[in-house]
Write a protein that binds this DNA or RNA. Structure first.
Length: 339
DNA sequence: ACCTGTCAAGTCTGG
DNA sequence: CCAGACTTGACAGGT
């Protein structure tokens, strides 16, 4: 099994390269010249897109092919008071340059809309804003010229005191979206509410591929043990990706592998928090099992030290590979596991 | 240059 | 019905 590693949202190695610079609405609303204020927002977005390109170039220099784009590329993009503002045209060039780079380097780019994107909500205004947020992310992918292999990862949302009916409401409200948006989504198990089995059920019901977060699973396992995960659940998660590849007419698993998220607990007293770096051994344990049934896998690291944590994990993997012949280092950001 | 409270958005808990 | 926690990078406003 070939495993590619990626990182999320920003670089801790590049100096002065934030892709998430912003302006608060409070500041925006205090500016007298609204046109100038909007131009300022565009200029901030241009800086964010420029820094994103720097991060992508830096990634490829380290063989990293997977990156999660910041959700904050365009400040105030979906704010109520800026409904009339259509920022995409003015940023088209910069977005296209990003998309071209991603395609040329065969990278896997994605978004992860924040926790305001909740399709299980019973509140109509929250549903409207969730749609707005998802549409915003999809339009950014489209403006980059990226096809439906490139997706937005979301969670199911809250339980509102009745997880079962909230899960059903998610399926109902999500299914009502047009294919243009539905086909851009992956569903991930969360660390508090919807566990792996429940998320998989929703993913299967909506026909959406599922991202398995193994850290979330550790802190919110439900009744799922390691045996069932590897023998029953992982093959079903894998199948959600196979189904998507078939829909897109992709013949090889390499073209859209299943994706997992990995991170390590912040501390013994804060298991849910994310540590600076990723512990290699628990991850390796999962990978060795997955390697029995899977040919290609993409693993997104969600560590506070971002790309630095990725390079450190590769260091650790190199050392492990030295004394375990089942592990082979392929390049600066991918390994091969044979079990 | 550096520090501290604040920030558009949701949900959950507890009062 | 409302305040505070959750979580987090970056702003805003101060020294």
């Amino acid at each position: 099994m070939k495993v590619r590693f990626g990182f999320v949202a920003m670089s801790t190695l590049l100096e002065d390269a934030s892709p998430s610079k912003t302006m608060t609405y409070k500041t925006f609303s205090k500016l007298a010249d609204r046109e100038a204020a909007v131009r300022r927002l565009v200029s901030i977005a241009e800086q964010n897109l420029h820094n994103t390109l720097r991060i992508l170039k830096h990634s490829t220099a380290h063989d990293i092919q997977m990156y999660r784009l910041s959700s904050k590329l365009i400040p105030l993009a979906t704010h109520d008071e800026l409904q009339d503002w259509k920022p995409y045209a003015a940023l088209q060039q910069a977005f296209k340059e990003l998309g071209d780079f991603v395609l040329k380097k065969r990278m896997r780019a994605s978004f992860h809309p924040d926790h305001f994107c909740v399709f299980s909500t019973p509140r109509p205004e929250v549903l409207i804003n969730s749609k707005k947020d998802l549409i915003h992310h999809v339009v950014m992918l489209e403006t980059m010229g990226l096809d439906e292999r490139f997706k937005c990862n979301i969670h199911i949302g809250g339980a509102y005191g009745d997880k079962e009916s909230s899960g059903l409401r998610f399926i109902e409200q999500f299914s009502a979206l047009s294919p243009r948006y539905k086909h851009r989504v992956t569903l991930e198990n969360d660390d508090k509410t919807f566990n792996v089995k429940e998320t998989l059920a929703a993913a299967e019901a909506t026909g959406v591929p599922m991202v398995l977060d193994i850290h979330h699973h550790m802190v919110n396992p439900g009744d799922l043990d390691a045996d069932e995960l590897h023998q029953v659940i992982w093959p079903r998660i894998s199948a959600t990706w196979e189904r998507e590849r078939n829909r897109l007419g992709l013949s090889s698993e390499e073209q859209l592998p299943p994706k997992i998220h990995a991170s390590s607990p912040k501390s013994i007293t804060n298991l849910r928090g994310h540590a600076d770096y990723v512990e290699p051994l628990p991850l390796l344990e999962f990978l060795l099992e997955a390697a029995r049934t899977t040919e290609y896998l993409d693993c997104m690291l969600e560590a506070k030290s971002k790309d630095s944590a990725l390079l450190q994990l590769m260091e650790d993997m190199r050392e492990l590979a030295g004394r375990d012949e089942r592990i082979r280092i392929v390049d600066g950001a991918s390994i091969e596991i044979n079990n």
